[in-house]
Amino acid sequence: MKRTRSVCPFCGCGCSFYILSEGDRVVGIEPSPENPVNKGMLCVKGWNAHEFIHSPERLTKPLIRKKGELVEASWEEALKLVAEKLLGIKEKFGPRALAFLCSAKVSNEENFLFMKLARAAFKTNNVDHCARL
């Protein structure tokens, strides 16, 4: 069994726990006793933070809309489509016709890169996140 230090994804308290896993299967959560925020405790959401990870409803392949339906596609095709469409719209309507929404659920590094993508690659400050809501 592997123990991996992590941070609870469910609220801004930032409780810390260890993810217990066997191979690629998460089997449990163990609160971190040394973390000053939760001091070895978790709420019911934290204790169950691992359950959704192996949900059968997880997305496992890129999807592209074809004839009105979302169908499975390769990464290559999906990424190419995203880059081409965004570039095309930028060419035709200018960078302000594009917008990017960051996430209160992903890491700092990913939010930083996403705003860099918007600002450096597509030259737009139309960047926001949903947590105003």
């Binding site: 941070v7 801004g12 308290c13 990870i53 997880r58 979302l70 489509l81 992903v106 890491s107 990913e110």
Partner: peptide, 27 residues
């Protein structure tokens, strides 16, 4: 959506998160 890209969850990647008291922690 026109394109849906499947992402990894918090348990499937490395990264830092900043809690409500401005504290960054590594997962």
């Amino acid at each position: 959506a026109d394109v849906v890209l499947p992402a990894a969850s918090f348990a499937e990647k490395e990264g830092t998160y900043t809690n409500t008291e401005r504290k960054a922690q590594l997962a």
